[in-house]
Amino acid sequence: MMQLQCPWCGDRPQREFDCGGTTGIARPPLDCDDETWSRYLFIRDNPKGPHAERWRHTFGCGQWFNVQRDTVTHRVTAVFGITERAPEPAPGPTADPATKGEPS
């Protein structure tokens, strides 16, 4: 099972957490047009590779925090505060060839 590093509790199994999806999405002004609002609500980059996302240690301390994780290898490359900005993705190949999975 994937392990995540809670900033308060340390390494814990993924089962203790809930994923809150893509992080750092700013809410547009409430008088914006429908297209902007639907973009905010529904449209996601959904990258194959590094993804900055929110997690909550639901069955632990209950705190929200941010994680930079590769969606293919599940390797976590950064853990940062819920109000902090995502670090720049590390250069180089995003997917580890050894665990890349079958061709799709």
Binding site: M1, M2, P13, Q14, R15, D18, C19, G21, N46, K48, H51, E53, R69, T71, V72, T73, H74, T99, G101, E102, S104
Partner: peptide, 13 residues
Amino acid sequence: DHFPSYAQRGNFD
């Protein structure tokens, strides 16, 4: 698996 994934493998949870 309730987190975004492109890994074509399941999770033990």
